[in-house]
Design a protein around this nucleic acid. Sequence first.
DNA 1: GCCGCGATTTGACCGGCGTCAAAGCCCCCG
DNA 2: CGGGGGCTTTGACGCCGGTCAAATCGCGGC
Lengths: 242, 242
Amino acid sequence: MLLQDRTSASCAPARCLSCKARGNSLCAAMADGELSALHAIGRRRNLPAGQAFNWAGDRNHHCATVVEGMLKVTASTSDGREQIVGLLFPGDFVGELFADDATLTVSALCETDLCTYPRAAFERTLEDHPRMERLLLRRTLLALGDARGRMLALGRRNARERIAGFLLDLVERTGRPAANGGTRIAIPISRGEMADYLGLTIETVSRQLSQLKAAGILAFAKGDRGCTVLREASLQAILNPA
Amino acid sequence: MLLQDRTSASCAPARCLSCKARGNSLCAAMADGELSALHAIGRRRNLPAGQAFNWAGDRNHHCATVVEGMLKVTASTSDGREQIVGLLFPGDFVGELFADDATLTVSALCETDLCTYPRAAFERTLEDHPRMERLLLRRTLLALGDARGRMLALGRRNARERIAGFLLDLVERTGRPAANGGTRIAIPISRGEMADYLGLTIETVSRQLSQLKAAGILAFAKGDRGCTVLREASLQAILNPA
DNA sequence: GCCGCGATTTGACCGGCGTCAAAGCCCCCG
DNA sequence: CGGGGGCTTTGACGCCGGTCAAATCGCGGC
C-alpha cells in the first residue's frame, strides 16, 4: 500500500490515466504526480440503471465523480412529490460537501460508473490542492447559475415554454445535424423523469410534445428515445415570447 | 497610494476594522494584515432602496459584499415576468464571478451599503488567498443547496405550502418571542416581492395570508410589515403534509 | 406469433391559481 | 383635514395544467 503510493507519486496511476472523465473532472486540476492522492482514497463503483448512490436523510459519507453515465439529483416533499434539481454527466462532481447529512437523493438514470471517495478524505485532499478547490468553485458557480435559470423556469414559465427550453438545452448538449436539415437530439430520460425535471406531470409533458409534433416542429422516429427538431427557431420563439 | 498600502499592510484599514459585515463576510478569511489587499481595490457604495446594483445583460464589471441592508437577485423572461432567485443579506457576496456578462439583475430592497470591487481585481485577490476562496466555495455550496430547496418549492409545492415555508424561514431568520406566546417576525419585503420570490402573484399571496389569518395561525398588527405567528406547528403541518 | 407488462398517449373533467377589476387602506403632502 | 397615489385586499371569472381513466404502443418472454 505504502509502496504503491510512493511509486505512483512519480507517475499517474493507470486507472486514472485511462479514465474517460479525466480532463473534464476535478482530477484535471491534478498533475500526473498528484493523482495518487486521489487514487489512494478513490474506489471505482458501478451503479446499475435506477439504483441510488445515496438517499436524502442518510449520513453523508461519500462523494464521487461521474466517470460514465448519467445521474439525477432529486429533492422531494414529505408526501412524495419529487423534483429533479440537477442532472450529472461524466466529469461532474457528486455529493454535498461539508454537510453531515444528505438532503438530496442521487440515483442513476442509466448504468453509471463512478469514482467514489470518502467525503472526509476528499475534503482533506481539497484543502491540500487549491487548484482542485478552485476548479470545484467554478463548477459550483456554474451549477448555481444553472439552478437559478431553472428557478425562473419553474416559477414563471408555462408548460410549453419549459418543454421548449428543455429541448433547446438538448439541442445544445446532444444535437447533431439530421438528414432533412433538422437537428437530431437524444432524449436520454423517460417522460416521467422529464416531468420531474420540469415540474410538470407525465401527461402534460406528453401532450405538449404531441402538440409540437402536430405543429411540425418536432418529428419522432418510431420506437426510440430521441427526436429531430425540425424548426429550432420556433422553439426559440416559444421560449422567448415577444 | 502606494504608501497607504504599505502602512495598512501591518494593521487593518480603519474602514475594515469598523465594518459591520466583517466576521461573516469573505473578509473574515483575511488576517488583519491581509485586508489591505481588499481595501486597496474596494470602494464603499450606498444604494438607495429600489435602485439596481447591476442589470442582466450588462458587462459584468463589479462584484461586492453586502455591508448593511438587503438585495434581491432576479432573473426574468424576455416578456418581463420576474423571479427572485436569491436574497442577499449583510456579509453575503454579490456578483457572478468568471462571467463576462451579467445574466441576473441585482437591486436593493431597502437602503443598502456595499463594499464593491472590480471583478477582475477581486478574482486575482481570490487566487492569492486560498482561505478566502475556500470560504467562497462554502458559501456557494450553501447558496446552491438553498437554490435546490427553492426548485422543489417552485416545481412541486402549491401556494399554501410555499407561503408556509416562506414564513417558517422568516421565523428562523428573524423570529423573536412575542408577548402572547407567538413568534413575531418581520416581513421585510412587499407583497409583490414575496410573489416574485415564491413564483406566485400578488393576489394569491394576499389571499393565502388572509386565509392563514382567518385560521388563527397568523395575526397582523395594523399598519406594519411583519406579523406574529400564533401556531407555528400549523405552518409546519401545511409545509409537510402527511 | 401471442401474451403481458410497463411506458406513453389521449380523453374527460375539475380545481387552483392567474387575470381583470374594484374597493379599501395607509401614508404623505398640501 | 382633505385629496391623491401606491400598496393591499377582496371578488368574479376563466384557463392551464393536474387528476383519473382508458386506449395504444413497444418490447421481451414463451
